[in-house]
């Protein structure tokens, strides 16, 4: 049998025997970013459509989570940096070629917006809230007057944030598993679905829960389509991408991916939601919690498996 055997004398920590430089921080950061993007997207969308009264949780309550999610995400990103004292260098330039750069800037836009949006809705939690200073009241009045403009900005930036969580990976041609343009839309869809799930979880409004569950069903359908599409693309591509796909098709990530992400994170909650929409009684929290879990696992598994996929030469 013709054989090829490659022996390398290199044993650099975190690089060999296979890349292992990104740990839990990056997938967590991407999950929280995607979740916040999903929630803010629906809040902005329903405001623009003038449906804030029909979707009170989506517009006014769920967004209150997003400042926490985004700040936690930024903390996770910070923890991942190995030269932490130089963190500020990230915000001295904007490099459009580098997703790490424009993504960090996108977060710098979305995070303050999420604070503004939450401040506008703080009375949902503290009904007697009053700003102490008159200039804060003026700012609030300004944003209330321009709420539609604010919503459009939020809508666009939440979409950019959602896509970015996938593009951060897909921009690396050195890791064949990540090097597919499907990852952008897939992670965006996963973020939107996590956002919708969070709304279903919190909402007490029957109509809103039903509508958001329906939206989640559609997004799960899109996600499954994208995943199948991604594997078809890999299998029809070069050897390195066939090898990358085989990590999930018989390789070490087969069970975690198909069990946690696809079955528990998509198929089971979809079935639960269909049953619930048809009048069966289900524990209300189960489907959305599973969706959030699946979305988190998707980022973790893609992050870790991608680092194991490589060119061989």
């Amino acid at each position: 049998m013709k054989e090829e055997l490659i022996t390398s004398g290199r044993m650099n920590p975190y690089i060999d025997p296979h890349l292992n430089i990104w740990h839990w921080q990056i997938p967590l950061y991407l999950f929280l970013g995607g979740l916040a993007a999903g929630i803010l997207f629906f809040a902005a969308l329903y405001t623009i459509q003038g449906k804030a009264d029909k979707y009170p949780t989506a517009v006014k309550i769920a967004p209150l989570i997003t400042p926490f999610a985004l700040v936690l995400g930024l903390i996770a990103l910070f923890l991942d940096l190995k030269h932490k004292l130089y963190f500020w260098q990230l915000y001295t330039t904007l490099r459009l070629e580098s997703p790490m750069s424009w993504g960090a800037w996108t977060l710098m836009v979305v995070t303050p917006l999420s604070f503004v949006w939450s401040a506008l809705n703080i009375r949902q939690i503290f009904p007697n809230w009053d700003w102490r200073y008159s200039w804060v009241k003026n700012i609030e009045a300004f944003f209330r007057k321009n709420i539609i403009t604010l919503s459009w900005i939020l809508l666009i930036f939440s979409l950019i944030l959602g896509v970015y969580t996938g593009i951060l990976f897909s921009a690396f041609n050195a890791r064949p598993l990540w090097n597919t343009s499907i990852l952008g839309p897939l992670f965006l869809a996963s973020g939107l679905s996590a956002g919708a799930a969070a709304i279903v979880l919190i909402s007490k409004n029957h109509f809103e829960r039903k509508q958001m569950a329906k939206i989640d069903l559609i997004i799960i359908g899109v996600e499954l389509f994208l995943i199948i599409h991604m594997f078809m693309g890999f299998l029809a591509s070069t050897q390195v991408q066939i090898d990358a796909a085989s990590l999930f098709l018989g390789g070490p990530y087969t069970t975690p991916f198909w069990l946690f992400v696809v079955t528990l994170g998509m198929v089971v909650p979809a079935v639960l939601e269909i049953l619930e929409l048809n009048g069966y009684r289900m524990p209300r929290w189960l489907a959305p919690v599973l969706i959030l879990f699946g979305s988190l696992m998707l980022r973790f598994i893609i992050a870790y498996a991608g680092q194991e996929s490589r060119w061989l030469y």
């Binding site: 975190y14 060999d16 890349l19 430089i21 030269h83 932490k84 130089y86």
Partner: peptide
């Protein structure tokens, strides 16, 4: 360098490493 690791991940030859000092 902020030590984000993007360059390490992007090199098809894995020619880079993270120095113990962080960069």
């Amino acid at each position: 360098c902020i030590g984000c690791g993007a360059c390490i991940t992007s090199c098809p030859y894995d020619a880079r490493y993270s120095h113990p000092d962080g960069y």
